[in-house]
Each structure stands twice: as structure tokens, then as C-alpha cells.
Design a protein around this nucleic acid. Structure first.
Lengths: 228, 228
DNA sequence: ATTAAAGTATTATTTATGTCATAAAATTAG
DNA sequence: CTAATTTTATGACATAAATAATACTTTAAT
């Protein structure tokens, strides 16, 4: 009885119901007990690395709570943010492929709780759950489309528009609060890293946009009023 | 007997042996007759569009002969080449995903013979051939890695290095002839579109590289001598 | 509570790279 | 075979955007 309650508490710690996320939702119900055995809830503090570019791929993470950035470094003082992730998003899957190292890093932007699935088990899951594999394939296809669109923008679109784009994408991703701000706190440096430019340029452009009445800024968040 | 020879000739026209390409190789042998019924050999002249960005996705193409570029337009006089494709490569698969339109165009850089698989049948094939789906997923993962790496380069790497990179990638992809040239003829404009820059910059950089003895140029081809 | 570190603010300067203009050569099409 | 179009060649010029420099402010860590 006591032991039972203890077990419950331990499980209760992560609260994952084995049916909400991409991974569980697309797995056969017969497979869920296997997932239950293999999943591992992990905590990351704000600013902490979840996985590191260049390191051996250990597995995938499904974010249960918090937000993270997925980024790729350039030299030792520049980076490009490839994607933001929040509750329900899978990260680390870029580590799939022939190479056994992560091509990007994942960093918690605020405290993150994530469900870790080791690579071995993840691969087994793909072999067993065809729908999971199919949907993951489609997900990669979508991400590739996004990536190539952004790459084209990086090559041809002027910074100002890239910054606007970045702001739109961020607000779209994290939603809008009642008072019309993007539901996230984010540094201008990270906006710059996402838009593929420098802090100074983001600073300038955002000033312009505020003057033009297109966005509003308050501390480390912003809200889009009208664009274009 | 006569009929048999006729059939043979008709088949002979495309010469595809149903076991060389990605698609056939990863399909169950029981599925090959179905592929045989559905495949459709198509010809494209140099410069001809194979599929067009923004148009409804009709299906996939496996290149049987010739080379093509996969590109994404910007405005009406700029583009970014996302990928080159040659014999054995699949193109058009970027059309998979939620959206039903091609996110890119495919254009023959020299006469192309390709095996066309309509979308409907391709999807059925994925449902039936799990290994195909799995490998396609991995292929997308690889392409995503490539894309994000290039995107990061686009954001942070100086043009000169991007041009060098483009040349390396092209020569690596198409191989080297006996006399040390990349096994392809390609315009400087296309090199520029691949490197994400302008013709003039490619012209300038390639001149530099020739002067520095790092590459050699002959008509519409080039060869890398030493780099870095 | 007290440093240290990270983020913000701001302007001046530099430079890398795109744009423009023009002509010749080469390739493709009728 | 000739015209039309594409590709190459090249220099001058413009400018977008990065770099540098400096100060202040907020946030995180011991």
C-alpha cells in the first residue's frame, strides 16, 4: 500500500499520460508498455544544454514542459537558431541519419522537462510502428520545406524582412497573450540568431518597427500590431 | 513471338531494370509488378521544366539519365538552387507533406529521361513497403541536415567560401573526369544560384581562385586543384 | 549582498557584396 | 545560316549590413 503510493508519486512526477505526444500517439497501443519502460523524464535548467552539436546521438526528447532552441554554431561566437520547441515538440530527431552525431545543439530557454527516448529504443519503435515512421517521414518533409524556404530567404531577402519574418514565426509558434504580446520572453540576440543577423541589426529594425507602429515591445517580449 | 519482340522493344525503350533505383530496390519483390504497371518513362529537353514550384504535386521522378536542378524562386529574376540530381536520384519528393503543391521546381540541365511515379501510387507504395518508408525518412533527415548546414553557411559564411563550397559540392556530386575537371557543364549563373550569390561575385571569386592556382576553368566546366 | 556575466542601447566606421552598365562571345532556335 | 538569346567579361559605383566602441542595466551566481 505504501509502496503503491510511492510508485504513483514517482510516476506522477512526470505526469505524461502516454497518449498525448507525437511519439505515443502514433505507436500501437500494444507498444505503450514498452515505451513506459524505456521513457525517462529529465529536467534541464534555463540555459542548460539538452544535447550538443558534434556529440554522439544518445536519443530523442519530447518536451513535456518549457521551451528550447535548436541551434547550429558558427565559429565560436555565432550561431543560427534552426527551430524553437515547446510542449509536445520532439527535439533531437535531427540526429537520425547515417552520421551518429547531433548536427545541432538543443538548449533550454526556460526550465525544460522532457521525456527522453534512447536511440536504440527509438529505432526499434520505428521498425514496429509503421505509422510512426510514415508520420515522421512527413514531418521531416515539412521541416525540409521550411528549411529550404528559410535558406532562400537567407540568400535573397533583406534583413529587415527577415527580422519581421522571425518575429512573425515566433509569435505564431508561441501564441499571443491577452494583451497582444508573443507568449515568450526572448533576447534580441536570439531573435538575431534566428533571423540570421546581428544583435545590432535586430535592435535597429525593431526600433524602426516600433516607430512605424507595426510592433510593440515590452521588456523581453514583443507583439505584432500590423505587418505589411 | 512477334508480339513478344515488340513488347521487349517497348520496354527496351526505357531500359529500367526495376531493381537499380532507390524506389525499386527498397520495395518488396512482390510489389515490382505493380511498379511496372504504374511507372511511366518521360523525356525532358535541356532547359525544360520537369515540375513547377507552386503547382499541384503530380508525383515523383527517378532520373534515369541526364541531370537536373531543383530550385526555388525569389521574385521573378532570382532563384536558389537547392539540389542537383543525376542518374538514380529521386526528385519531386519535396512535394510530400501536408501541402499539395511543389515547394520547388525541377529543371533539366541537360536532356533528362526520368521514371515518373504518380503521387497516389507512390503513397500506396509507402504504405506497403515499410523499408522504403524508413529509408525515405532517413533520406529526408539527411537532406534536412544538409539544408540546415547550408542555411547556417548562408547566414554566416563569406561569399568566397560559399562559392568554394559550391564548387566542391558540385565536383563531389558529379565526379571528376580523367583530366581533373568536374564531370558537368554548368553556367556561372547556376553556380551563383547554388552558392546564394550573384553571377558577378562568382565570376570574381573564380578568377581569384584561378590566379591562386586553386582551381582550373575550361569553358563551362572547372576542376578543383587544391583547396584550403 | 556582491560580483560577474549577459543583455540592452546607441552611433560611427568599414567593408563586403550587390547593382549597374556595356560589350563581346557563344549557344540555341527558326 | 542568320537572328535572337544566353552566357561571359569587366570595371565603376552604391549601399546594406557587419564591425567596433562604449556605457548602462538587468539577471544570474557565489
Amino acid at each position: 500500500m505504501l509502496k503503491g503510493r510511492f510508485d504513483l508519486m514517482k510516476k506522477g512526477k512526470h505526469n505524461c499520460d502516454l497518449k498525448s505526444c507525437f511519439f505515443c500517439k502514433l505507436s500501437l497501443k500494444e507498444w505503450l508498455p514498452a515505451i513506459d519502460v524505456h521513457r525517462q523524464m529529465q529536467q534541464f535548467k534555463k540555459g542548460e544544454l539538452i544535447f550538443t552539436e558534434g556529440e554522439e546521438v544518445k536519443g530523442m526528447y519530447v518536451i513535456y514542459d518549457g521551451i528550447a532552441k535548436v541551434h547550429k554554431k558558427w565559429g565560436d561566437d555565432k550561431e543560427l537558431i534552426v527551430r524553437f520547441a515547446q510542449k509536445g515538440d520532439i527535439i533531437g530527431h535531427r540526429g537520425l541519419g547515417n552520421d551518429i552525431v547531433y548536427p545541432v545543439s538543443g538548449t533550454a530557454l526556460e526550465a525544460v522537462t522532457a521525456c527522453f527516448i534512447d536511440l536504440q529504443f527509438f529505432k526499434s519503435s520505428l521498425k514496429v510502428n509503421h505509422e510512426l515512421t510514415y508520420q515522421l517521414m512527413l514531418f521531416f518533409a515539412e521541416e525540409l520545406q521550411e528549411s529550404e524556404k528559410k535558406m532562400r530567404n537567407m540568400a535573397h531577402m533583406p534583413v529587415r524582412d527577415r527580422v519581421i519574418n522571425a518575429l512573425e514565426k515566433i509569435q505564431e509558434k508561441f501564441g499571443t497573450t491577452d494583451d497582444g504580446f508573443a507568449n515568450i520572453t526572448i533576447t534580441k540576440q536570439d531573435i538575431a540568431n534566428f533571423a540570421g543577423t546581428t544583435y545590432e541589426t535586430v535592435f535597429r529594425v525593431m526600433n524602426e518597427l516600433v516607430e512605424e507602429g507595426m510592433i510593440k515591445v515590452s521588456g523581453k517580449t514583443f507583439g505584432i500590431i500590423v505587418l505589411r
